[in-house]
Amino acid sequence: MGKYLLKEVCDITYGFAFDSKRFSSDSTIGLPVIRIRDLKEGTSHTYTDETCDDRYSVHDGDFLIGMDGEFNIVEWQGGDALLNQRVCKIRSSSDDMLSNFLPYVLADELKRIESQTSFVTVKHLSAKVLNRIQFALPSVDRQREIVAILKTLQSEIAISEQMLAKADELIQSRFVEMFGSATNVNLSDICDFYSGGTPSKKKADYWDGTLPWFSPKDMKQPNLSDSTDHINDIVIEQTNLKLLPADTVAVVVRGMILAHDVPIALLMVPATINQDMKALLPKRDCNPVFLAEAVRNQEAFLLSETGSSAHGTKKIDTEVLGAVQIPEVSLSLQNEFAEFVTSVESLKSTTQQQLDRLNTLYASLTQRYFMV
């Protein structure tokens, strides 16, 4: 198994500096121009009438690398297009290397370079660094085996991800089916809001404990049983920080995550929260699973009403949170919906575990196959 520099086995074409003044959304004027932002979506809706050398043409199946921001290699499937600056096209130039082996051998190396690249605003991948990439190249037959194995794993990962997305859609559809015609009330009519806080970092004993202290970085799952940071029980006795009961719904109300998501979670254990979150404390009997999903169902409204603080951080004002519309339905209906959600979440948990195993296996295999 020999080692090669990327430039020894590949042809790399760097994009053309098209005149942005000639860009248009009119698809009749010419071909689409592939910019970095188009790589994730896999399509471009920006067109140009400018002509260029044929080497800047891109066709389905070509592999492209974004050279600013995130350094990803993608297989283009968006139809005939043109290669813009800061995007490069890469093709095998050697009989010793299969073209479809490229994304597998380069993916981890590009991420390694990305993690080690310093930046002020946006990370930049230079042609010099790209040309220095070195990797081991197994026989063509072995390359075929590796591609087949990793492609199968990718397909299984994609299926698991689709199942998780479908499960979320199922919960949303069931919510609309059960409560779409119900009368709504303001969230502030059924809940009080509590903002958390951060214990003094100067008191080491405050942070020597096992009591969960949730912050926005923990809000990645709908149900949370533990946090990254923990505090001592004495914080509750010596400060104004409140111990929230199990089954409390928490919402992130401050942070840049609010530019695109409003994290909402059910705290499954007694816990505390920081000042960037609000706990919903029901004034009447209310199923917490129903409550969490009802607020989650209004994410579009919350995002549309998200403001910014003086220093630019996104925030949801208490008045906005209080204006969220919640179906006013009987506790028995809430419980029925909660049982449905619990069954779907159980399925999601099993699927997530399978997805985690697949991702771990994929990472293990890529490390084994592509260690230089």
Results as ranks from 00 to 15, higher is better:
L31N: 10
T351P: 03
K151W: 01
E8G: 05
S25A: 15
K278V: 09
S215N: 11
L137R: 01
D233C: 03
Y206K: 04
F101V: 04
M1P: 10
F63M: 08
M371D: 13
K202H: 11
I65S: 11
A310L: 10
E299N: 14
R296G: 05
L6M: 11
D108A: 02
R22H: 12
L241F: 07
S173E: 05
Y56F: 15
N232M: 09
V87H: 01
L266E: 02
L244N: 08
L321C: 11
V320P: 14
D60Y: 04
T210I: 07
I133W: 00
K201H: 07
T272K: 06
T360W: 02
T318F: 04
R86T: 08
N84P: 11
V176Q: 15
A294I: 14
E70H: 14
K283I: 04
T46V: 15
K278A: 06
T360N: 12
F175Y: 15
L331W: 02
N240M: 06
Q85I: 11
E41R: 14
N274L: 14
K166R: 13
D96E: 07
G180K: 03
I34H: 07
P212Q: 09
L211Y: 03
Y194M: 12
S27F: 13
T28P: 06
Q172E: 13
I149M: 05
N297P: 00
I149R: 04
W213H: 12
M371Y: 10
A294Q: 14
S115H: 10
V252I: 07
Q367F: 00
R55M: 11
L170C: 13
I36F: 04
V252N: 03
V87R: 01
E299L: 10
M277V: 11
T183I: 12
R55G: 00
L150C: 10
E161I: 03
T48Y: 10
T46P: 02
H260K: 13
R132P: 06
M219A: 12
Q172P: 02
E177F: 10
E237N: 10
V329M: 09
V235C: 11
L170F: 14
S115L: 11
E299H: 08
L110C: 06
N186V: 00
E237L: 10
N232H: 15
L358R: 08
F71R: 02
N223F: 12
F179N: 02
G255R: 00
K111V: 01
A107H: 01
R174Q: 15
L82G: 06
L125N: 06
S181V: 05
A17N: 06
R112L: 08
R296M: 06
A165C: 12
L153P: 04
E328Q: 12
S227Y: 09
L39F: 09
D53M: 03
D96N: 07
